[in-house]
């Protein structure tokens, strides 16, 4: 399915990152990242394994603390706000994990209800059911409602993981390797789902991947993370219009025979 033209508001920055640095032991993973995510935009972060792509979104969601720099999400400085404020902010951010991270002791229904009943005080049983059915319908998996995560395929788990984040109507979506480990057909389905989420839920998203097909089909803008910094940022064609031997192999591996 072709990606529809997104309504991007470049006057409204939902995530603003400046001078972000993060190290683990002696290894400097992020070395001064600057990033703007605009309202309604899908930004794909590309890079080799271990370059800090997942670290970046974990820093944005407050799961990790940066060594230096600032992260502003929906007007809140993630590095400076209190635990309670961070918790309230997280309700507005959806995080889809690489391995889905479904709660394996709960059914699909319980997985979806879990964030809802804890964040929407006074919600009735009817409203819970309606919300659960609505997001399951959105990801096309209504029939799995009573199944356990272990009974689902990799693609279904990814979809349920996305549904669990959608149930809180997030303004921002963070996808960590959404197509990793999936067959090509399921990858296409997940790419379409990401575009549907952008169109129907009006979300702004950061998509972490090293799958160029995913990047091409979902990204309004691509940012290439190399050696701890964004070396090339632009549209898909702009980023790969280069002879840089750190960038070219990505394209060649995926698109040339």
């Amino acid at each position: 399915m072709e990606k529809q033209k997104a309504h991007i508001d470049k006057n409204n920055t939902v995530i603003k990152v400046r001078g972000l640095e993060k190290s683990f032991a002696d290894y400097d993973v992020l070395r001064g990242i600057d990033l703007d995510l605009y309202q309604g935009e899908n930004l794909v972060v590309l890079g080799r394994s271990g370059t800090g792509k997942s670290v970046l979104i974990k820093l944005i969601s407050g799961l990790l603390k940066p060594d230096a720099g600032s992260i502003e999400v929906l007007g809140n400085d993630v590095t400076a706000i209190s635990e309670r404020e961070l918790q309230e902010l997280r309700i507005r951010i959806g995080f889809s994990f690489q391995n889905s991270a479904l709660y394996d002791s709960m059914t699909v229904r319980k997985n979806l209800e879990f964030p809802l009943v804890r964040n929407r005080k006074g919600i009735t049983r009817d409203e819970i059911n309606k919300n659960v059915e609505s997001v399951l319908d959105a990801v096309g998996l209504s029939h799995t409602i009573n199944q356990m995560p272990s009974e689902l395929s990799g693609g279904q788990r990814k979809r349920i993981g996305i549904a669990r984040t959608l149930i809180l109507n997030p303004e921002i979506m963070l996808y960590d390797e959404p197509t990793a480990g999936l067959d090509p057909i399921t990858c296409i389905e997940i790419n379409d789902l990401i575009n549907e989420v952008q169109a129907n839920y009006k979300t702004s998203s950061i998509i972490i991947t090293h799958d160029l097909t995913c990047a091409k089909h979902t990204g309004d803008r691509i940012a290439m993370l190399l050696e701890g910094q964004f070396q090339r940022v632009g549209t898909f064609d702009e980023v790969f219009a280069t002879d840089d031997n750190r960038v070219k192999p990505f394209y060649d591996y995926n698109f040339t025979e």
Binding site: L63, R90, F95, F97, N99, Y103
Partner: peptide, 10 residues
């Protein structure tokens, strides 16, 4: 990452 998933869902 199930614990992280709980954390990021508020």
């Amino acid at each position: 990452e199930q614990i992280d998933a709980m954390e990021v869902s508020g």
